[in-house]
Nucleic acid binder design. Structure first.
Length: 348
DNA sequence: CGGAGGTA
DNA sequence: TACCTCCGG
C-alpha cells in the first residue's frame, strides 16, 4: 500500500550513516513531516502532548527547538520547507488521513474508557497540525536563525528543487515522495537519539541516505518509469494504487513494457481513477515550485530575545533550560562561522 | 523526541 | 559508557 513499499525494493542502495556524515551539509527538511513527528511522539504515556499553562499544545515547539539545536551543533545546516496549497487531486488522500485520524481518536477514547494505561500508541495517530502551530513554528525557526521556505504547493517538491539546484545537499523527510519529484539525495531518520519505536518496540535507527541515481541505476528505470512504478503502487494522489498489485508485481510490469500507455492499459487505470495518469506524471516531473536564490538564504541570524519570548513567556518552557540551549546554539553558530572563515582563507 | 539523572 | 526511566510543557 503506497510508496513506502518501495523500501523493500531499493534496500541495497540505502546507505546507513551516522550524523557526522551530514556535518557541513545543508538539509532541506519537510516541515510538516517533522512537525507531525513531534506531535505524534512527544507525549506522555497516557497520550497527552506537552501543553502550556493555557492548555495549548507545545510538543512541536519543543521538538523543533531541541532537535534543531542539536543538528546545528553537529554542523548541519537546516532549511525548513512548508507545504503550500495542495493540488486538487490530493483531496482524496487528505480525506483518507482525516478519516483514519478520527478512527484513531475513537479507539483512543475506547481504550481510555477501558482503563488502558498505555494510550500513547493510539494518541500519536490523533495528531492535528493547525495554522497557529504552523505560524508559531515559523516564528521560532526565524528566531533560531533557521531559514524556511514557503512552498507554493507540495513541500517535498520544493525541497527536491532545492537539492536539484544545489541550494541544499539533501531532502530530509521520512517519505520517499521527493525522489519522485526528482530530489537527487534524500536523508531519512535525521534524529539525535538514534532510537525510534517501530510497532511498539524500540530499535536503534541511524540516518539513511538514498540517492536517486542509485535507485534508478539499481532498478534500471528512468525517472518517468520510477514515477509510473509509484503510481501503480499508490502515491498521495492515488492512495489506493491498483488493487491486487504490490511493489514486486508493479516493478515487473513497469520493466516489461516500454510504452507507458501499455502499462496503464494493462492495469486498467481508467477503471480505478478519474484523473489521468498523464496529469499526475506531469505534476511529479514539473511541480509548482518557487524560485530561490542561494544568496537569499541566511543561516544563523539568531534573535535570542524572541526565542525567550516564544518559549518562556508565551509557553512556559523552563527558563534555565532554554537559556542553556540558547548559549549552546550561539556557540555552535560562532564555531560554524569561524570554520567558514578558515575555509575561506584556505580556499581563497 | 530529546534531556536529565540514576544505576551497573 | 551503556542502559534505563521519568520528565518536559
Amino acid at each position: 500500500m503506497g510508496l513506502a513499499e518501495i523500501r523493500e525494493l531499493i534496500k541495497p542502495v540505502i546507505k546507513e550513516v551516522d550524523l557526522s556524515y551530514l556535518s557541513g551539509k545543508i538539509v532541506a527538511l519537510d516541515a510538516f513531516n517533522a512537525l507531525y513527528q513531534f506531535l505524534a511522539a512527544i507525549r506522555q504515556p497516557d497520550g497527552t502532548p506537552l501543553k502550556d499553562s493555557k492548555g495549548r499544545i507545545t510538543s512541536h515547539l519543543s521538538g523543533l527547538f531541541y532537535r534543531n539545536k542539536n543538528l546545528i551543533e553537529n554542523g548541519i545546516k537546516l532549511i525548513y520547507v512548508f507545504d503550500g496549497r495542495h493540488p486538487e487531486f490530493k483531496k482524496k488522500e487528505q480525506e483518507l488521513r482525516e478519516e483514519q485520524r478520527k478512527k484513531m481518536e475513537e479507539k483512543y477514547e475506547i481504550a481510555k474508557e477501558a482503563g488502558e494505561k498505555n494510550l500513547k500508541k493510539y494518541a500519536e495517530f490523533t495528531s492535528k497540525l493547525d495554522y497557529n502551530m504552523i505560524d508559531e513554528a515559523k516564528e521560532l525557526l526565524k528566531a533560531m536563525g533557521v531559514p524556511y521556505i514557503q512552498a507554493p504547493s507540495e513541500g517535498e517538491a520544493e525541497a527536491a528543487y532545492l537539492v536539484k539546484k544545489n541550494i541544499a545537499d539533501f531532502v530530509g523527510s521520512q517519505d520517499y515522495d521527493s525522489l519522485l519529484f526528482g530530489g537527487t539525495r534524500v536523508v531519512r531518520n535525521i534524529t539525535i537519539s538514534g532510537k525510534r519505536k517501530i510497532r511498539g518496540v524500540e530499535v536503534n535507527i541511524s540516518p539513511e541516505i538514498i540517492e536517486l541515481k542509485d535507485v534508478l541505476n539499481y532498478l534500471n528505470l528512468n525517472q518517468e518509469k520510477l514515477i509510473i512504478l509509484a503510481l501503480v503502487v499508490g502515491t498521495d494522489y492515488n492512495p489506493d494504487g491498483i488493487k491486487g498489485i504490490g511493489i514486486k508485481k508493479a516493478y515487473e510490469i513497469v520493466k516489461k513494457y516500454d510504452d507507458p500507455e501499455k502499462i496503464f492499459n494493462y492495469i486498467n487505470w481508467d477503471k480505478y481513477y478519474d484523473i489521468s495518469w498523464k496529469e499526475l506524471e506531469k505534476f511529479f516531473l514539473d511541480p509548482p515550485v518557487v524560485d530561490i536564490n542561494k544568496e537569499d538564504i541566511k543561516f544563523g541570524e539568531i534573535d535570542e530575545e524572541k526565542i525567550r519570548k516564544i518559549l518562556i513567556d508565551n509557553h512556559d518552557f523552563s527558563e534555565e533550560r532554554v537559556n542553556k540551549s540558547i548559549e549552546e546554539l550561539k556557540k555552535s553558530y560562532k564555531q560554524g562561522s569561524q570554520k567558514n572563515l578558515l575555509s575561506f582563507f584556505q580556499n581563497g
